[in-house]
């Protein structure tokens, strides 16, 4: 296998595996930057995958080739609404944010499987008929060398993910809204004194994370899984959370981390065909993202510093 062929097999697969992680991790960045820990990313992805698949199955005849795109938009909406539960518990009721996130994960899976059994009379849905397909990006695909590696046989969602990462970076770091959101996560009391509505900002951030988690879950379902069952989303949400931290709570960092984790996953999938890597047991590639995150947190790969007020409920008038 020549080097070019190698790149042609590794890079599209890496992009394909990272897209759902990028979406979800960006959601995580928004939530955690505002000071709300979101362990519930996994559950939000489950919800997104469920809605994406069910909508796709139900409306495939109505929307035709546009079905997957409409499905992910609907999944975004439902994810956003579902995340309100987390916001309600952790912002308004001062509940332990980690506990509330754990409850979100339980609830999403319970609701998803319950409704699947209710509507399809079995533990998993049928296969979707209108998933995303790989395409060649027009014009760019014809660039010599780069074109065949990056722009041929690619899922368009991968580029939407990368694009959204830059949009998120712009929103968080170049707009007043982003500044306020980050201020609320660093020092809510100072933000409050300056007239920023801490609760509102946190609600918005958690709802954005729900939309992005729903997007990530539905993209995973419509590019990788094709149906919904209890085993559709197993750990992708937690991996996205790892990407948030590994990327130091920065949208572009999170994107980079998600791309890297996607790359590690793609290696564990197609590693058998690659010289050098074929001798590495698959398990090392599977656990690599998690081990690296621990090392990053322990300070071996640059210090990962969380937003100051992350995980602390803001109670007005308390010092």
């Amino acid at each position: 296998m020549s080097f070019m062929e190698l790149l042609q097999s590794v890079i599209p697969t890496a992009l394909f595996y990272s897209a759902p992680l990028i979406f979800t991790a960006l959601g995580g960045v928004f939530s955690e930057r505002s000071g709300v820990v979101n362990i519930g990313l996994e559950g939000l992805m489950v919800m997104g995958a469920f809605v994406g698949i069910v909508f796709n199955l139900t409306f495939a005849d109505v929307f035709g080739a546009w079905t997957p795109w409409v499905s992910i938009l609907v999944a975004m909406g439902v994810g956003a609404i579902f995340a309100i539960i987390h916001a309600l518990a952790s912002v308004t009721f001062y509940a332990d944010q980690v506990v509330s996130g754990v409850a979100i994960n339980f609830l999403a899976l319970g609701v998803g499987i319950f409704l699947t059994k209710q509507w399809y009379d079995k533990g998993q849905t049928d296969m979707v008929t209108q998933p995303f397909y790989t395409t060649d990006i027009p014009v760019l695909a014809d660039i010599p060398l780069i074109g065949s590696v990056f722009f041929q046989g690619i899922y368009p969602t991968s580029y939407v993910a990368i694009f959204l990462a830059f949009v998120s970076w712009y929103i968080l770091y170049k707009t007043p809204f982003g500044l306020r959101l980050r201020a609320v996560g660093e020092h809510p009391m100072a933000a409050d004194t300056n007239g920023i509505n801490v609760y509102k900002m946190r609600y918005i951030a958690v709802i954005i994370s729900g939309a992005m988690g729903g997007l990530g879950g539905s993209v995973f379902a419509l590019t990788i899984a094709f149906n919904f069952s209890h085993a559709t989303i197993v750990g992708q949400g937690f991996m996205a959370l790892a990407a948030v931290i590994f990327g130091k709570w920065h949208p572009l960092g999170a994107m980079g981390a998600a791309l890297f984790f996607g790359f590690a996953q793609s290696l564990s999938v197609i590693g058998g065909g690659i010289p050098l890597l074929e001798d590495v047991p698959q398990v090392f590639l599977l656990i690599a993202p998690y081990v690296l995150t621990i090392l990053a947190l322990a300070g071996f790969i640059g210090r990962a510093e969380a937003p100051k007020a992350n995980g602390v409920p803001y109670i007005k008038g308390n010092r």
């Binding site: 509940a95 506990v99 409850a103 339980f106 609830l107 499987i113």
Partner: peptide
């Protein structure tokens, strides 16, 4: 469907967590 119980358990956790209020 037996997943009803998972929903119930999730809700119980919610109420216990939010009970601080």
């Amino acid at each position: 469907p037996n997943e009803l119980v998972d929903i119930i358990i999730a809700l119980i956790i919610f109420f216990v967590a939010s009970s601080y209020l």
